[in-house]
Write a protein that binds this DNA or RNA. Structure first.
Lengths: 341, 341
DNA sequence: CTGTTAGCGCTTTCAC
DNA sequence: GTGAAAGCGCTAACAG
């Protein structure tokens, strides 16, 4: 059996209370005693049984998830996963509260963050809007020793403890290479469709995409980026018009959400020139389009993994423990019609 | 606070012992009493605190990992991940023992499995060799109520509780589509390189690959499959010869390990016709080759995820608990030089 | 059949 | 400064 506090106490000739004080670095122990105890701890290779400690403490991890009230499939699934996490919270000694805020609105986000100031909170996860005032609000929480994790979209220059999301620059580069290689050296134009360039993840995808295109696929010309605000209707209109206006388009990269509109436009199009399409986020719509051959590649981030990872990281940070780095790396999933889950 | 056994006892007017007997479905309770207690349990929405229960029981999960003693990078990393799991085992109340067996040897595997018969084991994970005698040995463990998980390679028609590995047919199909699309309709021959068609994962990859090639990329002809036994030297020889003998090869699919040899052959080749190459498993060698443009795509399975998943699943099965299915799905990772971790 | 009691490994009063 | 003792939620003897 693993050594316990009793073993330490016996070996060091002190009481359990003293051992506990040393283990938890609380005051009230002569430094001679402390050192004796610490020596024993190292000696016998003691490691604390966290489960027992949490039981004794009645430890609870009150976590808060701040999520945008966006009406697109990806955000829906992020919400769903967060609710799933809530249903599991009991057995993991944590309680999760979801706060919904207006999307793309720094002020609303700041208000939500500041509302957490006094509260008894073990950690906060938020989908960041990349603005200085948000960065400052996060800074205040970090100062107050509250672990903070950004989710899906990161916050430039912020002190957040961790980012649970994909590398969006790499995602953009990957999209570019797949599109470029699939088009196999053909000459033509590429349509790029973003949600909004005010969010960091979309900006970064575009950045990676443009750089790679310029560098490796000079036969392809990028048309000016369209911003569809992740809204199906808007996207549909923009794409329909752009395809009509630009007969040389042979590829599309859809950076954001609202792919429902894109797919509608693709379906409506007279089956003319073949189009190669790369889009983000696997939803019911993009899955179907992939199967129908309307979309060629879907790049995806696993919302479930992101939420579970955020919970694990927040709990670990709350206790000052390390995480398994590889487990918390959020992968860029690449889906063709052949490897759909 | 969540309701506890005390609350149940009080509400049902019985003692803790009786509550415990009901909770653990042990005998020795009149069915009237049992029903009364069960009613209360449902009423107040009790859920057992597993951590406390395990503490009281002094529960330990003795797990066994049976791994092949193969000398290739992937198996090395699988071993490494298993050792990592051992180092974490303490804090997860489990003890993990690794048994090494001769690779591709059903008899050795059966011997290892049978050696576990009497032992106090909470679960077994094995890299299966797909043979009837292995299936039978697994069957015996399952009969003995020991949870069994296959790792990396599955066992046909077996009663194992779970498979922690990728969908290899989908992997083969994906390889085919990527190769086909990257080659963009060009006419030519494709070299297929397997480790051994005696292992199920390689067979399945080939199956998926061939089917997709035939179905969608008829401009490409598959050469007879070469078996390199996952051995770098052998692979190197085979590839060098095949490329010399078949000047029309424009694509390669490397199904198994031993890619060190493939890469050496590619480097040695006079920089002639461009070759499109899809290989499996991200190792130091394939990573470098990807960066150098020698390999175009690496399909990968995350050994760390597989090991962690196997541990979680075995523990859950040992307690008769459910797992989070999505978390235990092992993804097919697709790496281009642009999204390397 | 049912209840009492001690105890898992750790923390936390409250005395000394 | 230090220690004794009770208790977290659950289980496991051992009595009755």
């Amino acid at each position: 059996m693993r050594p316990t506090v009793h073993d330490i106490a016996a070996a060091a000739g002190v009481s359990l209370a003293t051992v506990d004080r040393v283990l938890n670095q609380r005051a009230g122990v002569r430094s001679v005693t402390r050192q004796r105890v610490e020596a024993v701890i190292n000696d016998i290779g003691y490691v604390r049984d966290m489960a027992a400690a949490n039981l004794a403490k009645g430890r609870l991890y009150p976590l808060v998830f701040i999520l945008p009230a966006s009406d697109n499939s990806f955000m829906h699934s992020l919400h769903a996963e967060a609710r799933q996490a809530i249903s599991r919270a009991g057995s993991e000694r944590c309680s999760i509260r979801i706060i919904e805020v207006k999307a793309f609105d720094p002020a609303a986000l700041v208000a939500a963050l500041d509302s957490l100031a006094g509260a008894d909170i073990a950690g906060v996860a938020l989908v960041a809007v990349d603005a200085p005032e948000v960065r400052d609000a996060v800074e205040r929480l970090v100062q107050a020793k509250i672990p903070v994790v950004t989710l899906v979209s990161d916050l430039t220059g912020s002190a957040r403890h961790h980012y649970a999301g994909i590398d969006n620059i790499a995602a953009g580069r990957t999209a570019a290479r797949l599109l470029g290689r699939f088009l196999g050296g053909r000459k033509g134009e590429v349509l790029v469709l973003a949600g909004s360039l005010l969010v960091r993840d979309h900006r970064e995808r575009l950045e990676g995409f443009s750089a790679m295109m310029e560098q490796e696929f000079s036969a392809l010309t990028l048309l000016p980026v369209l911003e569809g605000l992740d809204d199906p209707e808007t996207v549909n209109g923009l794409v329909t018009k752009a395809l009509a206006d630009n007969p040389d388009v042979i590829g599309i990269y859809s950076i954001g959400a609202g792919n429902r509109g894109l797919i509608r436009a693709l379906r409506a199009r007279a089956a003319g020139k073949a189009l190669t399409v790369v889009a983000h986020e696997l939803t019911d719509y993009t899955r179907e389009a992939l199967q129908d051959g309307l979309i060629d590649v879907v790049l995806n981030q696993d919302a479930g993994h992101e939420v579970r990872s955020a919970v694990r990281v927040l709990k670990a940070k709350a206790d000052g423990l390390a995480v398994i780095a590889a487990q918390e790396r959020i992968r860029l999933d690449i889906f063709l019609k052949d490897n759909l889950p």
